[in-house]
Structures are given as C-alpha cells and as structure tokens.
Design a protein around this nucleic acid. Structure first.
Length: 271
DNA sequence: AGCGGAACCTGTCGGC
DNA sequence: TGCCGACAGGTTCCGC
C-alpha cells in the first residue's frame, strides 16, 4: 500500500494525535508481525512515552526520548487506527497499544506483511542505514544520481523501486514519475543521459509533492489514521489507466510487466 | 556484485 | 453458482 506520501500523511496525523502519550500496555494478536525478540516487545514498550514520530523512506520511527524507539513498516496493507473509547473487534487487528488517555492505537494489516520492531538504537538500525537519499535531500543531485546509476543494467523502473537509491518510491509513483519525465520505464540505468537524469529528479519531487498535498493515493486499502481516504488517485495520469487515453497525446495507455510488477506508460510519449 | 524470480499472507475480481 | 488463477500500494532471500 503506502509509499512516501501515504506514510508522511500518517506520520503527520500520528504526531498530532498521540505525541506525548504514554503506552500503558500492548496486546499482540499476530506474533509474526513483531520482528526481533517478541517476548521483550511488550515489556520494552510498557510505560514508554511517545516523543517525535518521523518518516524515513517508507518507515515510521516512533522515538522514545532517547535513541530507542519503535520502527514500523506498513508494507502493502498495514494501517493505523486510533479508537477513542473501546476497541472494536475486527479480524485484521494485529497489535493494539493502550494509551494513557484511554484511547487505543491499533495496527491493522490484512496481509500481515507489515512489521513492528523495538530497537535500542534507531540511528544504528541496519534497515534504515541502508536506505538511499530522501527525495529532497541536498546530496541528491543530477550528478550524484547519474553517477549512481550510470553503470546499472537494470531498468529505470526497477531503479526507482530500489530503496537504496532513492527511499520512499513505490509502484504507483514510479509509473507516474516516469510518465511525467517522459522516460521509457524499460530504459536501462546505463542508457540515460544527464539531461534525462535531471528530468527524473524533477519529476520525483514534483509528483511526490503533489501527492502529499492530497494526502496520498487511495486505491483500495490505504486509509489515513482517521479512516479518511487520500485523494491523489483523482490526479493519476497512467497508473491503473490501461486502455485510457494519454492526457498529453491521446495514445492508448498500456500496461507491461517488469520484475513481476505492473508498469503503466504511454507508448508514444515515453518511447 | 548485481540481477530476476520466488516467497511471505490474505482478499478480491474476472473468466470459464 | 463455484472454482481457480491472476493480481494487489513491499521487501527479503536465494540462485545464477
């Protein structure tokens, strides 16, 4: 489900809703969701006060005042639900956090790919350390990105999904970005010019910024903490638009498979 | 080293 | 109607 704009929306809403709340207890309904030491998880989180919640790539980092914290990844269908009073019974509730104001934060996940992990030092957490540039990081420049991908034999689409290059992009925005930049998704890293790299970065920033403005894209599962939907699906140009007309040239949008995943493109504009 | 495919788990949808 | 395969917003592991 969520890519950077969806995760950022959720992080912003959680900061408003539960920052400075203390976790009074937690109930694990699906143990496989918990990474690391499951036995310690409940004990480590007990009586912790949630400080700042930040996003890095598609991870949510709940800081507990020091370097310790809770690292969450929503994967495809993970979401957070805040219930003010009693906890409803739903089949996909996986972990329930009880908070000191009587409310409950529920981690809900249909497919159970999502992960929660307590970490003693977030700064040294390997999965976070291996992430690439944030889209608005100064070090992400035409030159640095060009240097990083100029020898790669894989497609631009796969490069955009590679979290060790730029962190936060996923399948929807990868197609939208390549369409915006008029780049063929099947072009290889070692085939693109500096000018094309410049356009790629510009489109990454443009599309993500617009998606965040509209609180992300809801196609089926993604919901905000208050259960509202994002609205960027109303502005998608190619994702899920197979057979529809390209807004730029009216050619028919096509769907192809790259590395087992769908890519949507205009075969004319992006040739 | 770097690439592509399988696996992880559950639900939905379209075709026959 | 019912079954079966394909597909879904992501990541990790494994073999080549």
């Amino acid at each position: 489900m969520p890519e950077l704009p969806e995760v950022q929306t959720i992080v912003d809403e959680l900061n408003s809703a539960i920052s400075e709340r203390t976790i009074t207890g937690c109930k694990i309904l699906r143990p496989s969701i918990i990474q690391g030491d499951r036995k310690c998880f409940t004990r480590e989180l007990q009586n912790r006060t949630i400080g700042k919640i930040v996003r890095r790539g598609k991870y949510l980092l709940f800081h507990f005042g020091d370097d310790q914290g809770l690292v969450v990844h929503l994967r495809m269908t993970g979401k957070f639900i805040l219930e003010r009073a009693s906890v409803s019974n739903a089949p996909h509730h996986r972990v329930i956090f009880h908070l000191d104001d009587g409310s409950h934060l529920i981690f809900h996940d249909v497919r159970c790919f999502g992960t929660l992990e307590f970490v003693k030092d977030i700064k040294q957490f390997k999965k976070i350390l291996s992430l690439g540039w944030e889209p608005w990081e100064r070090r992400l420049t035409t030159q640095s990105l060009y240097n990083k991908i100029k020898n790669r034999k894989t497609s631009l689409k796969a490069i955009l999904l590679d979290q060790t290059v730029i962190a936060g992009l996923g399948n929807i925005y990868a197609s939208e970005i390549l369409y915006d930049a008029t780049l063929n998704p099947e072009l290889k890293g070692n085939e693109i010019s500096q000018e094309q790299t410049r356009r790629l970065i510009r489109s990454v920033r443009k599309i993500l910024k617009a998606a965040m403005k509209y609180n992300g894209t809801t196609i089926s599962d993604y919901r905000r903490v208050d259960d509202k939907q994002g609205t960027f699906q109303n502005f998608l140009k190619v994702y899920g638009k197979e057979g529809e007309n390209c807004p730029r040239c009216s050619s028919s949008i096509i769907k192809i498979k790259q590395n087992q995943r769908s890519t949507f493109l205009c075969p004319n504009c992006q040739s």
